[in-house]
Amino acid sequence: LVRYRTISKIPQITLNFVDLKGDPFLASPTSDREIIAPKIKERTHNVTEKVTQVLSLGADVLPEYKLQAPRIHRWTILHYSPFKAVWDWLILLLVIYTAVFTPYSAAFLLKETEEGPPATECGYACQPLAVVDLIVDIMFIVDILINFRTTYVNANEEVVSHPGRIAVHYFKGWFLIDMVAAIPFDLLIFGSGSEELIGLLKTARLLRLVRVARKLDRYSEYGAAVLFLLMCTFALIAHWLACIWYAIGNMEQPHMDSRIGWLHNLGDQIGKPYNSSGLGGPSIKDKYVTALYFTFSSLTSVGFGNVSPNTNSEKIFSICVMLIGSLMYASIFGNVSAIIQRLYSGTARYHTQMLRVREFIRFHQIPNPLRQRLEEYFQHAWSYTNGIDMNAVLKGFPECLQADICLHLNRSLLQHCKPFRGATKGCLRALAMKFKTTHAPPGDTLVHAGDLLTALYFISRGSIEILRGDVVVAILGKNDIFGEPLNLYARPGKSNGDVRALTYCDLHKIHR
């Protein structure tokens, strides 16, 4: 019993810090008490220290592992850092350059016999395009090294910054494609005289377009951006097909006994025919423009016929181009109408809503002055909100995010209106959640004399007048207030005048 009563005193000691020596009952000389009392004092002292730490809000209350900052290894790049964003855009520009100039170089340097010394005699450094290609190869190699040090988000939505895990993730992902696209074939085969082989191998750079397509997928929600990307894709495919079309004609031209190829026909049409040795002929500019003209006309199913396939190889390629053109029509131009419709969806919704308003007016036989006010209010409210119901949009977000959005939407009023000066951010967040926005066209009466005042109004834009009878008592403008002081009276009061809008007004109100 003594032991039980001794232990039962522990909660009292913990909360009230009572010393055991003052209790005459606990001072009985028993061996059990002498053993338990020192333990009680020690526990009391420890609990006292913990309570003191909690009340003082000291940093040592938290466990040590929670006080440590997340460790980022040296030379690790955050995937959302500004440097990584700028670097990704730079790589994107280099990939676009590669997609345009690599097929052009591979096709127009394929057994090209233009006048001038061969590239091997001039030297590697004197070729501007080769120098640019070398810079692109170096940048792609540097990009691989950067990807080995860039964080990523795993399946659990955690940012991984450990170098080993980053390397394994990159090896399992895009490393092989990036490595093949970054191989400097110019340096590996330079001086061997195989410019045709170098041009063909350099087309491996186009593998990076797969990554670019995935990154550009984030802009699919913007109709104008999608339309622009589709047109660029169409032009890029036409450019690639033009390079292939020229390569076919250029390879067949020296081996044909009869002059029936499209390059021969082009030379005869523009007065620059090929001679018996295969030299001469149109310039590279004429060849490229004509090839691009043929691919565009074939892809769009126009086909004027002034550039036509004559050999079997050219006919087979033309059939493939027609098939590609039909697929592009289905996948690209078939979506253009939907994209344009999405661009004008706001206008369509406006006309639909206006039609419903006019049908309501016609069905209920609203008189002319009231009908005009109804239409003007709808037009003004639509121009202010673009038909978007803010309350319906915010309803799907958590309250903390709703408060931040409301604070942002009402920031101008909260910053410049005098009653809100000096208020804490928590108070402003709470008030912003209570605001209701209303609009009024010129001549609209917001409050009639004798109406119950259940709200306090803040003028965000425009001006109003307060009338008693036919006498203008006051004219209020931006950041002015009218209405009933909230919670100042037990019952809502009545208006002693009319409140009429002089201009288009936007008002925020808080109800009782």
Rank of each mutant, 00 (worst) to 15 (best):
L67I: 03
K418V: 09
V302C: 14
I284P: 01
F185H: 04
V86F: 12
S345N: 10
I324L: 13
A204W: 01
Y104S: 01
M139L: 14
K434N: 04
A130S: 03
I138W: 14
Y124D: 01
L263M: 01
V159Q: 03
P184I: 01
S301C: 05
I260V: 10
R71H: 08
L200P: 01
A204K: 01
S308G: 01
D133K: 01
F83G: 14
E121Y: 12
V159A: 01
H79M: 01
E314N: 01
D286W: 06
R371S: 10
L241C: 05
V289Y: 01
F140E: 01
K84C: 06
H162L: 11
Q415G: 11
A423H: 01
E64G: 10
T385H: 15
Q415E: 12
L109Q: 09
V86D: 01
K285D: 01
L67P: 05
C427Q: 10
G422V: 09
I198F: 14
I144K: 01
A99P: 01
E195H: 15
L323I: 07
G278E: 01
Y170S: 01
V86K: 03
E64Y: 12
H416G: 11
L299H: 01
A432W: 01
R208A: 06
C122E: 01
I332W: 04
C126P: 01
D88I: 01
A167K: 01
N156L: 12
R349T: 11
V336K: 01
N275T: 09
I183W: 05
S194K: 15
G116L: 06
P128T: 14
Y219T: 05
L110G: 13
I340V: 10
Y350Q: 07
T445D: 03
C417H: 15
L323T: 07
I72H: 14
T76L: 13
Q402E: 03
A130P: 01
Q341T: 08
N410A: 05
W262D: 04
G278I: 01
P70I: 05
D133M: 01
P367E: 15
L236Y: 01
M256D: 15
K395M: 08
P117R: 14
L134W: 04
A182L: 13
F228R: 01
W262S: 03
L110P: 11
E115M: 04
T98I: 08
N391Y: 15
I146W: 01
A155Y: 11
S220M: 09
N391D: 03
W240M: 03
P398H: 03
C126H: 01
K172L: 05
N368G: 09
P128K: 05
G199M: 08
A238M: 04
A291L: 01
A130E: 07
Q269E: 01
V142G: 05
P118A: 07
V393I: 07
G164A: 13
L129M: 11
V210A: 09
T98F: 01
L94G: 10
G443Y: 01
K84W: 05
L370S: 01
Q253T: 11
Q402K: 04
P70Q: 03
Q402F: 01
I166Q: 01
L343F: 14
R356T: 12
T102N: 01
R259K: 15
A423N: 01
S308Y: 04
L414Q: 01
Y170V: 01
V160M: 09
F378V: 11
S313E: 11
I366A: 02
V210C: 09
H351D: 03
I248V: 01
V160H: 01
C126I: 01
L279N: 06
